[in-house]
Nucleic acid binder design. Sequence first.
DNA 1: GAGTGGTCTAGACCACTGT
DNA 2: CAGTGGTCTAGACCACTCC
Lengths: 274, 274
Amino acid sequence: MPKRSAPRYQLLANELSRLILDGTLPPGSILPSESELSEQHGISRASVRAAIRELVTAGMVDVSQGRGAFVRIPRAKVRRHPTSRYVWEKEQAGKADSERQETSITDYDAGLQHDDVEDVAIYDTVPADVDLATRFQVPPGTRLLRRRYEHRPHLEDAPLSLITSYQPWDQAARNPDLLDASKEPWPGGTIHQLSTIGIEVMRFIDEVTARPPTIDEAGKLNLPDGTSVFLIRKVAVDADNNVVDITDAVLPGDRTELIYEIDLPAWATPPLQP
Amino acid sequence: MPKRSAPRYQLLANELSRLILDGTLPPGSILPSESELSEQHGISRASVRAAIRELVTAGMVDVSQGRGAFVRIPRAKVRRHPTSRYVWEKEQAGKADSERQETSITDYDAGLQHDDVEDVAIYDTVPADVDLATRFQVPPGTRLLRRRYEHRPHLEDAPLSLITSYQPWDQAARNPDLLDASKEPWPGGTIHQLSTIGIEVMRFIDEVTARPPTIDEAGKLNLPDGTSVFLIRKVAVDADNNVVDITDAVLPGDRTELIYEIDLPAWATPPLQP
DNA sequence: GAGTGGTCTAGACCACTGT
DNA sequence: CAGTGGTCTAGACCACTCC
């Protein structure tokens, strides 16, 4: 026997979804108002709203009070290349100041930090929680230097990333400039700044997860409903396998594409053609 | 002057959220029923439902018809190490069958494919769309071999990943076994299977994005509301920089952690201690 | 001021889960 | 069967946008 019919709001959501996907309602176009849909389909306004909520959650529609509901225009993705970016950043940091290119780290489009304008840098110290203490191999409660940034591509835009970086306070204190937001060694970047205290970063480990945004993050990153955030925990390791820096980056899920490149060692003997 | 008060459903959502975060409502515990909350707070049931929907979208609560609303128990994350996995897989694939370890690719916990049970393998051919055609550098419409899999950690569980892999049909046809799900060369894995047609994979490029799940994906991956999926496009490149395989993997955002390791070349001269 | 979406109510019936 | 969440209605008022 046939399935019981789907709920009315679901039927309407499906119908609108179809109209969007087949181009009848192109990106940027406005949906009929809630009262129109309610009349046309003979269902209550609450049901219409439930249908539209489905579409918002699915990322197909944006709604704006007093104006209407619009088919979402996909936002351009920012492509980030952590692999090549890290290699490039270390190369740059290794050069003497004199021969370092004019192009700052800011101009290299691929990385996680210093994309363009950086504002709201807050420095403070926090006691290590269990998680961070384990990573740094220090007792819980050890004093950590915490630095927070927001990065935005242009002055008017919403920030593209929220960055929080941690390192043991005792380590950072070997160069007092690292403790002061206004004296931070230029150019920025974990690798160069750690080099000022005699540390060479040999490896980064990026741990990538996704989760729904907190209220705060949704506001700051200007996230539409239904989108989630990337959380990248970037662990910097030195030649002795000590963790020397941990940086958490929160990125908007709908505007970010992460590209990792993995080179594989060549085989001693190439495979035979069949 | 003070802000206008937040809507009632928002106030209730905040209050419940606080109770969850401070442990008064521990993970797994049941929330008061909608009618109870409605009475206790003197608001309509619709407002209570709006409050609970907020919590569901934030990933804090799961609701189940006929039973109640429960504080969500965070699901264990599956850690995937594409970097080391790819290197290991190529190493294994390079060994002669005789010296290959008993441990199959299945047992290596880190990768994207062949985690455990693999079912629903569907093979077919599709014409290349513009995107895929560009990647493979073939004319749009060129015939591609498409292989689809679902992977699940145990027979009863929901699948952990939905995999779709593409390669030019002409390329795959050099080994007819690749065209037949029942004869697919063992062990699995892109690298080994491509080696049977004389191709050595030299590089993988992982392109990682996140988006809301389609209805289909939400069902198959058993995703709670509000969670999104990872989409990993894994591009395999040979020594001549030809793209030889493209694999799209859809992973549940709430149960996946991706770990990429980036080794950096050493500096010629180590940094000086200050 | 007209029209939009946002909040809210009171009440009804249905579908599912447990006992 | 009682109790839960899921769907739905009809109507009201508010807040915002745009003309």
